[in-house]
Structure formats: C-alpha cells, structure tokens
Amino acid sequence: MLKILKYSFFDLIRSRWSYVYLIFYFLLSVVLLFLNPSLSKAILTLMNVIILLVPLIGTIFGVMYYYNSKEFTELLLALPIKRSSIFLGQFFGVAISLSLSLILGLGIPFIIYGIFNSTAILEFSLLILLGTFLSFIFSGISYYIALSNENRIKGFGFAILVWLFMAVIYDGIFLIALNMFSDYPLDKFALIASLSNPIDLSRVMMLLKLDISALLGYTGALFKNFFGSNMGSIIAFCILVIWTVFPILALKIKSAKKDF
C-alpha cells in the first residue's frame, strides 16, 4: 500500500493541477495579508473561501484522479497486490497531496508574515486543521462515488451534487426547518444539525474562535458553551474523524466487492 501511495502521491505532485492549486492558495493568502490590516480579518476571509473551495476541489480531484488512472488501476489489479491497498493507497495519495498544497499554500505566506509571533496562531492552526479534514472527507466521499459509478458523467455529476448538498442545500433545509418549527425550542436541534454536516461544523468552530461570537446572543451562548468546553471540542473533532473514517471504510468494502 505504501508503494502505491508513494507512486500516486508523486504522480500527483508532479501534475500541473497541484501546482495551480498551490499557487492559488499562495496568492490568495498573500493578497489577503496585504489588503487586510488585521490578521484575524484575513483569517476570517480565508475561512469563507476554504469552507467553500476545499470541499469542492477535494471532490473534483477525487473523481478526476480515479477516472484518469482507471487503466493503470486495472493493470495493478492483474498483479498479486491486495485490492484494498491499491485503492486506499491511491486515495491517500490524492488526499495527502491536496492537503499538502493547502498547508504549504497558506502556511508559507503566513509564516513569512510572522504568524508565530502573533496571537492569531491558534485560529490559523485551527483553520489549517479544518481545511485538512475537509480535504480528506470530500476526496474520500468523491473517490467512493467514482468507484461506485462506472459512468464518468454520472459519477462526476453525483459527486458535485453531494458537494452542493453539503455546502448549500443542507443549510437551506436547515433554515426552512428552523422557520417551520419556530414555535418549539430549537437550540438542541440547531446544535445537532450543525454538528452533523462537516462544512457547517467547520464554519461554526471557526466563527466561535473569531470574535464575531459576540453577536451570537442567547442561542450563541449555548453554542459557545458547547464548543468552548473541552467536551464540546472533543465531540466536534470526533465527528470530523468519523466523517473522515467513514468514506475510507466504505471505500475498502466497496473495493473488495467490486467486479472489474
């Protein structure tokens, strides 16, 4: 598995798209740091971008890589290698190279700017951590979708739909539910609903670390108490880990059963 991981990883690292991705994050953070007088403002803007783009790019990369390397995969399958190590190796290759682009692309400008000497180091590390989680989660989901669909168009469409659901539609349904049942106490429901979507969860965790938590008012106090406590942070991270592990397990099972 490590060999395949290494091969996929270096294959991706040499590809043009990884560089484009890296340079995009690099430029984005440089521009934000130059335009924004305050570091936490820059991190806030960066958060908005990351919450949206990291899952999208993870989704597209996962699907694309599977379909592009399909012939090579079939060749590997003919060799005496365990199936799970082929697919897991490829998946980790994608996920790690994506995360690396993100970490380097954001990290270098911020280190040059002097993040280690500032008070925003905690927020920034949380941002990087959440970005890495989201990369893993969404490339895992999309890799699984690609594996389950032979038809490229169908697989691609389905993966994008999942992203769209998580990023946009979920919040829409959430909001409608809040409005429809506004006569009932909804704080627990809101808490659970925001915990169960990785994008929402990352956003809320980030918002509560930045100073806009001020405006969250009464219901915000509940969220703040939850996420601010050690227990809450542990639960939130556990959920992110579950979201990461779940597609990988599904991937493993699917790859063992699939007929090529």
Partner: peptide, 14 residues
C-alpha cells in the same frame, strides 16, 4: 423570526 438561525451566519446559502 428564529434566533437559532444565527448559526448559519456566513454560510454560502445565506
């Protein structure tokens, strides 16, 4: 209308 909706602040849908 529903104060809990504040949790959706800065999401893309909003």
């Amino acid at each position: 209308k529903s104060p809990e909706a504040i949790i959706l602040l800065r999401s893309m849908f909003i």
